[in-house]
């Protein structure tokens, strides 16, 4: 009897697993289709992409398959330069953003000073202002900022940040949402830890660096991912403040392919190339990504 019951339970468990896997598989396929279409189309000539588009062949590497579109991408745009620019800008925005915003969050959540609630409220209030509404005044503003430039081996004073890396990076380091997330997360760590550390002679930076940061891995991962995506996908701002081709990021490069007759094969090859870093980053940090979402309740 016990053996039969055990068999029944195993069969029921298997049925539940199958029932669970069916919708999960369908969902996975739904989300995979655009990516498969993109990679497969990047290997086909334009005419075949358009001919295959209303059949299952759109998702299959059949017909005249080659890497010609990838060659076309490298002929049409300076891809390596665009990729370098995007990686450079994104890494600095994420890196400096983690540092600055976590320090701000630390000051707002752990340190006692008058007006901190008001400051936090003001920071949160800036979240309701869409970037598009302040983009044009910001262009004017950054075009009037002082700067130092190397010219013929001499450091010279100049005006205007246009056509520089800093104009794509500095305005996006401080981020209200990141500060809010850090503040909220740091608030959950018991204050008695700080008090104990201070009794042992630790200063505020030591508490931040050696106690709070090591205890806050998931929120750092969350903020890193939430900062990475908009930085990598930046389009409007670089378009407005960078006129030189040598400084353009990958997303602005996308427009190179939309001429009177769009080169769809090259579009797909280019999007495949610029999607790869995002996919790699997701795969590498998959565990941290999932746990941070679960821990913070934030979705990207």
């Amino acid at each position: 009897m016990a053996g039969k019951k055990s068999l029944d339970m195993r069969a029921a468990k298997r049925r539940r697993t199958i029932l669970l896997y069916i919708p999960m598989t369908l969902l996975a396929i739904t989300f995979m289709f655009p990516l498969i279409f993109m990679f497969v189309s990047s290997l086909k000539p334009d005419a075949q992409i358009l001919a295959d588009v209303d059949s299952i062949n759109a998702f299959l590497p059949v017909g005249d398959i080659s890497f010609a579109n990838y060659g076309g991408v490298f002929e049409r745009v300076p891809f390596a330069r665009f990729l370098f620019n995007s990686v450079f800008v994104t890494v600095l925005i994420v890196g400096l953003g983690l540092l600055v915003n976590s320090m701000a969050g630390f000051a707002l959540s752990r340190m006692e000073w008058s007006g901190r609630k008001l400051v936090l409220s003001l920071i949160i209030a800036t979240l309701i202002v869409p970037f598009e509404t302040i983009a044009v005044p910001m262009v004017y503003w950054v075009s009037k900022l002082p700067t130092l430039v190397w010219e013929n081996g001499i450091l010279k004073y100049d005006i205007g940040w246009l056509n520089s890396y800093e104009v794509m990076i500095v305005p996006f380091i401080a981020n209200a949402f990141s500060i809010f997330l850090f503040t909220q997360n740091f608030s959950t760590i018991p204050p008695s830890i700080d008090e104990a550390a201070r009794i042992d002679g630790a200063g505020w930076f030591t508490i931040y660096a050696r106690i709070i940061v090591p205890l806050s891995g998931p929120v750092f991962a969350t903020v890193a991912i939430l900062t990475f995506l908009p930085a990598w996908n930046a389009y409007l701002w670089p378009l407005m403040v960078v006129q030189q081709e040598s400084l353009r990021p990958v997303m602005v490069g996308m427009q190179y392919f939309f001429q009177l007759n769009t080169a769809w094969g090259e579009v797909m090859a280019y999007t495949s190339l610029i999607t790869l870093p995002v996919l790699i980053m997701f795969l590498v940090f998959q565990r941290a990504f999932v746990s941070s979402i679960a821990a913070s309740g934030v979705k990207g």
């Binding site: 056509n163 890396y165 040598s246």
Partner: peptide, 18 residues
């Protein structure tokens, strides 16, 4: 490191065509 990198690159690309 990022600050140094930014400073080192400065206005990379400027002056090559514009």
């Amino acid at each position: 490191v990022p600050v140094l990198a930014l400073a080192a690159c400065g206005r990379a690309g400027e002056g090559d065509s514009d």
